[in-house]
């Protein structure tokens, strides 16, 4: 099993809030006696420290959403955890997501919350916003109705929303306000750990920066940790402390944001960074050839080898382990040559 203890400047002694070890989660289907297995999360190990924003990047169908769903314990068959563990540490108490179901249920929203992608889908269109807060958070707070209402109102004020929005229906609010509301909803209990799935993808460009600043601000004030998923590298650049790059269900690189952008160690990461368009630069960007691998039948060896410009024979047969290198981790047989290039 691959577990590497990192040393990074953010919070020195505190125990990590999340520890994922050798996690494998597969979609297992059995149609007419034919077993199909889609390896959406394949041997992922990572730790997330307190007070840290960890970004997960990767293309669609790379398994990044399956990974965070598995971490949240929010999976339903056919997706199953085959191996490995997900352990949280909430206030010194260890909590195994898949071994301690009842304790996990109590911890939800109070310690662990979730910002979902399409804000319109989260808020019930025929009920007022205040009911959403009541449904999600009331029973976790242990307050009376009046105290709860006051707490929600002051919380909304802090994130820049008028408390009057509680009396409105979701369709009366703009996309940016709804996304703020879902963030408000996820943070009202001041959880230690927040999972966010594409928090800004559905938003207009003009409000994107405000929402990102809001996420960062709330995180700093509460000192909680956030793991978020997006394929938009500029969002990672803006708020992530560390980035993990997922390719075909595997973590292929992890490192401090600045390192990943300035000195990518994996050829896939290098390509991702190099293909980003910038205003003021019209030089031709080379797009990655080939197609994303089919996770039901992934390529042998390193899963990136059919599209990799640096692939050698070894890459076709042997799967590179994720190893510590230059203050980060990388899974590539040719990571050494990447540096030289």
């Amino acid at each position: 099993m691959l577990t590497v203890v990192e040393k990074t400047p953010v919070s020195v002694e505190a125990k990590p809030v999340l520890r994922v070890e050798g996690l494998k989660a597969y979609y297992q289907m059995n149609y007419f006696g034919v077993r199909r297995e889609v390896r959406a999360v394949d041997d992922v190990s990572l730790t997330i420290k307190r007070n840290e924003i960890y970004g997960i990047a990767g293309e669609s169908s790379s398994g990044k959403s399956s990974l965070i769903k598995t971490i949240a314990g929010a999976i339903t068959p056919p997706l199953r955890v085959v191996e490995g563990s997900v352990k949280f540490d909430f206030g010194g108490k260890e909590l195994d997501v898949y071994a301690q179901r009842p304790a996990m249920k109590a911890a939800r929203w109070k310690h662990l919350s979730y910002v979902m992608q399409g804000s319109m889908n989260v808020l019930n269109p025929v009920r007022k916003v205040k009911h959403a807060f009541h449904d999600f958070a009331f029973k976790h707070m242990g307050l009376s109705e009046g105290e709860f209402r006051a707490k929600v109102e002051s919380h909304l004020q802090r994130i820049g929303l008028d408390p009057r929005v509680l009396e409105s229906y979701p369709h009366q609010l703009s996309g940016g306000m709804r996304q703020r509301l879902t963030i408000g909803l996820a943070t009202v209990c001041e959880p230690e750990f927040i999972i966010a799935d594409e928090p800004t993808t559905a938003l207009d460009v003009l409000v994107q920066q405000d929402v990102l600043a809001l996420i960062k601000g709330v995180q700093q004030r509460m000192g909680s940790s956030i793991i978020f998923v997006t394929h938009d590298m500029t969002v990672h650049a803006a708020i992530a402390d560390r980035i993990g790059i997922v390719y075909a269900g595997r973590l292929v690189e992890e490192g401090l944001t600045l390192d990943v952008f300035q000195r990518p160690q994996h050829p896939y990461t290098a390509h991702l960074i190099a293909s980003l368009p910038r205003i003021g630069d019209t030089r031709k960007r080379v797009a990655l050839g080939g197609k994303p691998p089919n996770l039901a039948d992934p390529p042998s060896g390193c899963r990136f080898h059919p599209r990799c410009p640096l692939a050698i024979d070894k890459c076709k047969t042997d799967n590179p382990p994720l190893e510590a290198r230059n203050n980060g981790r990388v899974a590539c047989w040719r990571a050494g040559e990447m540096e030289a290039a």
Partner: peptide, 26 residues
Amino acid sequence: RALRNAVLPPDPVIASAIIREKLRAF
């Protein structure tokens, strides 16, 4: 101009500085 400024550059140094600036205004 507002639209132009809303685009985050793919550079962690500049992009995080923009977000920090926004935070201060909060």
